[in-house]
Design a protein around this nucleic acid. Structure first.
Length: 561
RNA sequence: CGGGAUGUGGCGCAGCUUGGUUAGCGCGCAGCGUUCGGGACGCUGAGGCCCCGGGUUCGAAUCCCGGCAUCCCGACCA
């Protein structure tokens, strides 16, 4: 491509509305332009990168045995009503009506539609397994789009759906997708981890997220320094801190006046102690009764862990409205011995060998030297805190760490939820009907572009991994070298390289600066000085390494690289 | 949804407090000349519904009211 003809305008100044590096540089380098909040146009360079990521994903999906299809983006709302997700997805969906008043939505994902299609075609165990995927635009009217492509309202996603006879089949499909995902992100040059996750809105059981490690990532995840344990903060757990209660060294329990101090930090400061010696009692609803989650004051309750600790029961943390409905609850001053509590679920850290400062079950009062066993008795134990750095890994005991990441992929074992709702059943070899067992697997393709830009750039601009760069080689013609540069351009193109040829009538400094900003991996500089000695200069964008190549050795040299 | 900030040629910004010529600056763009290995310089030029609507006033980018848009922070943890 001759740069003199490329639809491109680079910007010298950072766009005022871009905060993170990927957004800032993709706009400055002319890859994307914002149309509205969370909506972007992909200019030619950006479109090529998106295409290259798509191609990598396509190759790995095909290799893993999945089959590509293409589903409509506009989907009847009726389909979503059948699984109830028109409500649960609710405001996240872009909804509208056609001229006849029929409801439609722009697809935020496609479990319903795929299930309905499979239900309409396949009915026999002989048909299974099958794994279908598409690469298509998805729409979510996000609460708060931000960080450019990282949380957009329109984004390109690869979504795959597997259908199996049983759980063993699902596990095999899931494993195949998991491995393929590792290949995709490795090929894209991302530093990533697969972390255990909660399934969230989509439903189902086992799920793992692929997180590209990045300081600007919106999600924190926990990982172990010495083994491969990794989980997002919702799903993460730790080893119990105390297996059994040691006798607490404490004096008599004492009631103290703590006026207007509902917060742990304020109470600790007021009493000259530290937050980790204060017990926090968080009220929750368990099957309509009052429960208390008891954790040290420097910790937070993990609502997912809380639910996991009380299997089979419906658990929900109290909201302001619950406290309004229960004026008898001294919010901020509840102790673990509160009389109305049917369940007192303590974290293992509560077994620490010392007395605690706790709420005195009365507004403006706390008690000191509150002792486990003497002053309060838990009804249950569990690991219910949000994991913090330094906690022990549940599988090996080494220290856990927390990093931030960008969720670039997510694999789920869904089970039969959608198959049942949409009638995706099959007949087995004994003539009996069963719902198909589903998995679903997503990759944020446009988000990968941003995540890679986030990881691969420097002060001068982008620095694409070779696999994703919009062009392989950036050929710069400096000064009066037209014929030689033209010849090289033709040779390289003929040899199969995607070449961006800066044939513009611009000064060298402009060309160098733009080349670094665009971030194509190999820069070839044809200048009058070098040409006089029969050489062109090669610069590697990532490392900055330079060397010289004889003009007639350029094509073979690049072929080797 | 709550809080904060912003909206002025394609991009980045000043002007607004204290209303008053023809609305400025840098980049970019066009023409001419000089220059030519890390975002050159000079001269000339084009390009603006000052976010939208209403109001105050002889007069509004500027003051008032109401919208809209964009960005940031937060969105239950006692």
């Amino acid at each position: 491509m001759r740069m003199s003809r490329l639809f491109l305008r680079t910007l010298r100044d950072d766009p005022s509305d871009a905060e993170v590096d990927s957004h800032r540089l993709l706009v400055r380098a002319g890859y994307i332009r914002k149309v509205a909040s969370g909506l972007y146009s992909w200019l030619p360079l950006g479109a090529r990168v998106l295409q290259r990521v798509s191609e990598i994903v396509r190759e790995e999906m095909d290799r893993a045995g999945a089959q590509e299809l293409l589903l409509p983006i506009v989907q009847p709302l009726e389909l979503w009503e059948r699984t109830g997700r028109d409500k649960s997805y609710g405001p996240l969906m872009f909804k509208f009506e056609d001229r006849k008043g029929t409801g439609f939505a722009l697809s935020p994902t496609a479990e319903e539609l795929v299930s309905a299609i499979v239900a309409g075609e396949y009915t026999s165990y002989r048909d299974l397994p099958v794994n279908l995927y598409q690469i298509n635009w998805k729409y979510r009217d996000e609460l708060r789009p931000r960080f450019g492509l990282l949380r957009a309202r329109e984004f390109l996603m690869k979504d795959a759906y597997s259908f199996d006879r049983d759980l063993a089949g699902l596990q095999a499909a899931y494993d195949a997708m998991f491995d393929a995902y590792g290949q995709v992100f490795t090929r894209c040059g991302l530093t990533f981890r697969a972390v255990k996750a909660q399934s969230g809105e989509i439903g189902g059981d086992t799920s793992q997220e692929f997180m590209a490690v990045a300081a600007v990532g919106e999600d924190a995840f926990v990982w172990c320094e010495s083994c491969d344990y990794a989980a997002n903060t919702e799903a993460a757990t730790r080893r119990p801190t105390h297996q059994s209660a040691a006798p607490a060294a404490a004096g008599p329990r004492t009631r103290v006046h703590t006026p207007d101090l509902p917060g742990v930090d304020g109470v600790a400061r007021h009493l000259g102690t530290s937050p980790d010696l204060v017990l926090k009692c968080i009220a929750f609803d368990v099957d309509g009764e009052l429960g208390l989650a008891v954790v040290p004051g420097d910790r937070e309750v993990n609502e997912f862990a809380l639910k996991g600790a009380l299997p089979g029961q419906t658990v929900r943390l109290y909201r302001d409205s619950d406290f309004t409905a229960h004026p008898d609850l001294p919010k901020g001053y509840i102790g673990p011995d509160f009389v109305g509590a049917k369940v007192v679920l303590c974290d293992s850290a509560v077994r620490a060998p010392h007395g605690w400062v706790t709420g005195a079950n009365e507004i403006d009062h706390h008690t000191t030297d509150t002792v486990l066993g003497r002053d309060f008795t838990p009804t249950a134990w569990g690991e219910i805190v949000v994991v913090a750095p330094g906690d022990q890994c549940p599988s090996c005991g080494a220290a856990l760490r927390i990093d931030r990441g960008i969720e670039v992929g997510h694999v789920f074992q869904l089970g039969t939820k959608y198959a049942e709702a949409l009638g995706a059943n099959y007949t087995d070899d004994a003539g009996e009907q069963h719902p198909m067992v589903m998995g679903c697997y997503g990759i944020g393709i446009s988000r990968i572009v941003a995540a890679v830009a986030e990881e691969h750039h420097d002060d001068n601009g982008l620095a694409w991994p070779a696999a994703l760069a919009p062009y392989d080689v950036h050929l710069l013609a400096l000064g009066d070298v037209g014929p030689a540069a033209d010849a090289l351009y033709s040779e390289l193109t003929a040899a199969g390289h995607a070449v961006l040829y800066d044939d513009r009538d611009a000064r060298p400094g402009v060309k160098f600066a733009d080349a670094d900003l665009l971030g194509i991996p190999v820069q070839l500089v044809v200048g009058t000085k070098g040409l006089a000695r029969g050489v062109v200069e090669r610069k590697m964008r990532v490392t900055g390494e330079r060397d010289e190549l004889q003009v007639d050795a350029v094509v073979p040299a690049l072929a080797r690289a």
